[in-house]
């Protein structure tokens, strides 16, 4: 009798962060952070500037050593196996950090060589990004536009076919069209099986991630899928608009039962303390305050609203 033994090895390529802390001169930049990223996931670290996102990236890419806690990337420990991590992850720092005086092609060749590979070997992975750069391949990196620089940086981070990709605020300072394009690229990379950890201060980008961690002052406030996070938000948010926006914020803040008031695009987002809040009452109040063209309607909860309430 023959036994056909099929062995299926599920490779769990993920990021595990356990109780990581890091201080700079007694100021805690990262405070007991714990999270996990599944393999093939697009995971977002969402938080304002100074929340500790970059420090987490620098620890996970072995540039910094944590004061406490431990972390593994692709099953390698960030302290003990830092060498293995360096050859299996791609990192794109927030600040453009390629050689400005080398051309697009030279930058790519340089990074390919120091990773012990060639441009041709992993061309398939970067092909659809590189095609957009190809017309400028003899131009110096310093002379590229912001969007092009970012594409080049992504190519350089991908040149050695990394298993995990770290992108620290990749879309900061990039125009909205390029930002959208960039996220489409990330989605395509994800389909190729690359685990992606991305950080961004833009809340609207959060909904494009599979899961997100909301982070502030070095602490993680919430981790979940963005849809779950917004769906779980129980308070009702109203979009309010009138002709005099500035006066509107002021008057809403003086409304006795207000919970929070903040500008959100063309509207003011208003949340009331009372469950039995009636928009008509507020309408009446605002009319008394001489507001005209008043619009009050229910708003859709966004990550930003959740974040504002944390």
């Amino acid at each position: 009798m023959n036994f056909d033994i099929a062995i299926v090895i599920a490779i769990e390529m993920n990021i595990k962060v356990q109780n990581i802390s890091k201080s700079y001169n007694k100021i805690k930049a990262v405070d007991a952070v714990t999270f996990e990223v599944n393999s093939g996931e697009l995971f977002g670290l969402i938080g304002p500037d100074g929340a500790g996102k970059t420090t987490i990236f620098r620890i996970l890419t072995t540039l910094l050593m944590p004061d406490e806690g431990n972390a593994t990337v692709a099953e390698y420990d960030v302290v003990a196996d830092y060498k293995a991590i360096r050859s299996s992850v791609g990192y794109m720092p927030g600040k453009f950090s390629l050689y400005q005086d080398l051309t697009v092609e030279e930058n790519l060749e340089f990074f390919a060589t120091i990773f012990g590979t060639t441009l041709a070997e992993n061309y398939a992975l970067i092909a659809d990004i590189y095609i957009q750069l190809e017309p400028f391949k003899d131009r110096r990196a310093g002379a590229l536009s912001g969007g092009m620089k970012q594409k080049l940086a992504l190519c350089c981070a991908l040149i050695h076919a990394p298993k995990v990709l770290f992108l620290d605020e990749p879309t900061t300072g990039v125009d909205p069209v390029s930002r959208k394009e960039f996220w489409q690229m990330l989605k395509r990379l994800q389909l190729k099986g690359i685990t992606i950890l991305v950080s961004t201060p833009y809340m609207d980008e959060a909904s494009l991630c599979d899961r997100i961690a909301l982070i502030q002052k070095g602490k993680i406030l919430k981790i979940d899928a963005p849809q779950v996070i917004t769906a779980n938000y129980e308070k009702l948010i109203y979009d309010i608009q009138s002709k005099n926006t500035h006066g509107l914020i002021h008057d809403l803040k003086n409304y006795s039962s207000h919970y929070s008031v903040y500008a959100f695009g063309e509207f003011i987002h208003y949340i009331d303390k009372n469950v039995d809040f009636k928009p008509e009452d507020l309408q009446q109040y605002l009319e008394e305050k001489n507001h005209s063209d008043i619009i009050i309607k229910k708003a859709e909860t966004t990550i930003e609203d959740v974040f504002m309430d944390l």
Binding site: T61, L63, K83, R86, V89, Y91, P93, F96, S97, L98
Partner: peptide, 10 residues
């Protein structure tokens, strides 16, 4: 900032 990029390479 290129040193940071170099440092994450093998």
């Amino acid at each position: 900032g290129t040193l940071e990029q170099i440092n994450v390479t093998p």
